[in-house]
Design a protein around this nucleic acid. Structure first.
Lengths: 244, 244
DNA sequence: CAGTGGTCTAGACCACATC
DNA sequence: ATGTGGTCTAGACCACTGA
């Protein structure tokens, strides 16, 4: 018995099947970000498992950042607007420890994926994409980062125009709010490179200056690649990383 | 009742106090890496808590990588020799995806910490340190990484000579095996830099070539800084990062 | 075979938030 | 006052390991 896989009890633990089903329901938009999810006992009853088992499933959702649990209040769908860890995916600092603050959108166009872009996004050539050129500056200082972003516009229809109109500070919040796409993982390759023409123009550095280059793909909960970006960081910036 | 904080029941959960006590005992060397820890029921009895509570404490130790649990076998102290994730702290790849393989120790001396080194290690100037210069090469290819390492020799007496004698492949395994020091966290700052004289000599690049620079401090379980290293990566190498 | 950790149940009491 | 999640207990059965 149980609501999940009534017949196909494939041997996987109950709490895992329950967790997967909850992930599916959250992804489907059954509850909006910030909204209260049914309580432990209610979910346990609905899935016909014990409270302890339901608890284990919900705990895992909380651990992966999907929901937010608070004693006395309840469990709510997590949002990127009020993240437990702000700046989770923003790892650049000035060498004296400050973060970048301002975002300026230099270009924002809708187009079709080139062969290279298609390969990086894992889609077919010609898929609708938005291309965004963005510059971030250090507080009080000069230009800091130049970001070339390619976004899957087939998954976020109208994103290009919307970004140009609203100039969102954070792209992941923008995706969450407007398209219910939750970025949960990024893969990065970090290299030393030299400043190109665009860097020279927008980062206030001489052509050929060594710059830090970060190639990054962002994946949503379903494991789909949502965007690819290449970031160049001006001298005086570094990438801060901490691993356990 | 309970073996921990018999009177000073400070209100912290039982499983947390138990976990902290187990961490303390592991750090003290009560069990050697790879050795079997008492079973859940035995520990539960010893701490006078229920099995579920003991389980929660041990689970957290496993999650932070301190112990390794296997059904049927038991719980063992984790080792850096047989890590669940090999290359946990080795993130460099060639641009076609291969790892570095060979380690060559170019220099290895014992000395006293300079002011700069002392600040980075969080110790007083003049503390005993070992300085290590190491080069890694790409499989089949040329020189890949040049590492300048400063190690707290007051915590690892004789480490300098021992490294020179044994040329360990992995420094964290070396520290684990010889001094029971477990590296559990690294903090890094990644920059673009230019090749200096040592890079030119050992990495086979021209002076002034852009290189990737990683400044890294390694911390053990007690939060002590064990080593600082500055790594320069030759062109054709990148740093791979994945975050959730 | 005995012992281990992995899963699951069915309760209890508590601190806390909200109404 | 009610309901929430956080902690804790005391069992049960199972899959797996090793002797």
């Amino acid at each position: 018995m149980g609501m999940i896989a009534e017949d196909g009890a494939d041997g996987r633990p109950l709490y895992q099947r329950m967790k997967d089903d909850l992930v599916r329901r959250i992804l489907s938009g059954e509850w909006r970000p910030g909204e209260l999810v049914p309580s432990e006992v209610a979910l346990a009853a609905a899935y016909e498992v014990s409270v302890g088992t339901a608890r284990k499933a919900i705990d895992q959702l909380a651990q992966s950042g999907l929901v937010d649990r608070r004693r006395g209040r309840g469990t709510t769908i997590a949002t990127n607007r009020t993240p437990a860890r702000p700046f989770r995916f923003l790892r650049f600092r000035t060498d004296d420890g400050r973060r970048t603050d301002q975002s300026l959108y230099l270009e924002c166009t809708s187009s079709r994926a080139t062969v290279t872009e298609a390969r990086r996004l894992g889609v077919n050539r010609g898929t609708a994409v938005a291309r965004v050129l963005r510059r971030r500056t250090a507080p009080g200082g000069g230009p800091a980062l130049l970001e070339r972003i390619v976004l899957r516009e087939d998954l976020c229809p109208g994103a290009g125009r919307l970004i140009a109109q609203t100039s969102p500070v954070s792209l992941s919040s923008f995706l969450d709010q407007n398209f219910h796409i939750l970025i949960v993982r990024v893969d990065e390759e970090i290299r030393a490179a030299v400043a190109d023409a665009a860097d020279a123009e927008h980062l206030d550095v001489a052509l050929g200056t060594p710059v830090l280059e970060v190639d990054r793909t962002a994946l949503d909960l379903g494991g789909r690649v949502i965007e690819f970006r290449r970031v160049h960081a001006a001298p005086g910036l570094h990438y801060a990383n901490s691993r356990s």
